[in-house]
């Protein structure tokens, strides 16, 4: 591997709470170590060179979705990005666009995701009062359960939102993350909502009909979720409600 290299990190710096501060790029040098990830590198930079550097990591294992940022032009999870992947030893780090900036590489994805969940009602709406928890559970088709899990693997990292041209132009667009979750509940036989109900939340320019099919979401999703297929599926479902009316 590329042991012994000196890496150059060009990092976006801006503290919106600091009066007079302006966005700028700052360069840092760091000796590369075997197996180094952007997580390891950023922590070393903070501990050794600039203790004010802001970024977010939680699980550092590609599971929690906290650390998405734009690395050499592509939005992705920083914790599992190996520095050895970049042959020219220069790594440029920018915060995810499309979210409120907290500072440097830290953005408020949590606030965005909670708002989307409230707006689109992204929770199971059970049929009836739900099953008694003391008796045998209702059976579910094993294939359905497996398909649901596949759609549920989204970690709300925000990569699809930042990679979406529609979202950049239309603030209110729900993004692939919102559509994927709708697709997940639409598929769930336990959910009481009908296609009509879903049409009311995503059958418009802010929902499935706003998507320009550029598919930045599909190309960059760290969990390889089938965004293209699900958006197409929802569009057909939503169009069908119009025909049947």
């Amino acid at each position: 591997m590329s042991q012994g290299r000196t890496l150059t990190f060009n990092i976006f710096r801006f503290d919106p709470q600091q009066p007079g501060d302006k966005p700028k790029m700052v360069s840092y040098q760091l000796d590369e170590t075997p197996g180094m990830t952007v997580f390891i590198a950023l922590n070393r930079l903070r501990e050794e060179q600039d203790s004010s550097l802001q970024f977010d990591f939680v699980c550092r294992a590609g599971i929690c979705g906290s650390c998405a940022m734009v690395i050499n032009g592509m939005p992705t999870l920083a914790c599992r990005t190996l520095t050895s992947k970049f042959s020219d030893a220069t790594i440029t780090l920018m915060p995810l666009p499309g979210f409120e900036l907290i500072g440097d590489l830290s953005v408020n994805t949590g606030k965005f995701m909670r708002e989307i969940a409230e707006r689109l009602k992204l929770w199971l709406h059970p049929r009836g009062d739900g099953q008694d928890i003391h008796v045998l559970e209702a059976p579910m088709d094993p294939e359905e359960a497996a398909r649901l899990y596949e759609l549920e693997r989204c970690v709300e990292c925000g990569v699809c939102v930042s990679a979406c041209a529609t979202k950049q132009m239309r603030e209110t667009f729900v993004g692939a993350v919102g559509l994927m979750k709708i697709a997940r509940f639409e598929l769930d036989s336990r959910d009481a909502r009908s296609v009509d109900d879903f049409y009311h939340v995503i059958g418009n320019q802010d929902g499935v009909f706003g998507c320009m099919t550029l598919l930045g979401c599909q190309d960059n999703c760290p969990k390889d979720l089938p965004h293209m297929q699900q958006i197409a599926y929802l569009r057909r479902k939503m169009s069908a409600t119009l025909v049947s009316c």
């Binding site: 929770w123 199971l124 059970p126 739900g130 099953q131 928890i133 003391h134 559970e137 209702a138 059976p139 579910m140 088709d141 094993p142 359905e144 359960a145 497996a146 649901l148 899990y149 549920e152 509940f185 769930d188 336990r190 959910d191």
Partner: peptide, 18 residues
């Protein structure tokens, strides 16, 4: 067992027996 069943009511797609 009650917690597992409650979570099924809340939407967890537990892997099922075939």
């Amino acid at each position: 067992p009650k917690a597992v069943r409650e979570l099924a009511n809340w939407g967890v797609p537990w892997t099922r027996v075939t």
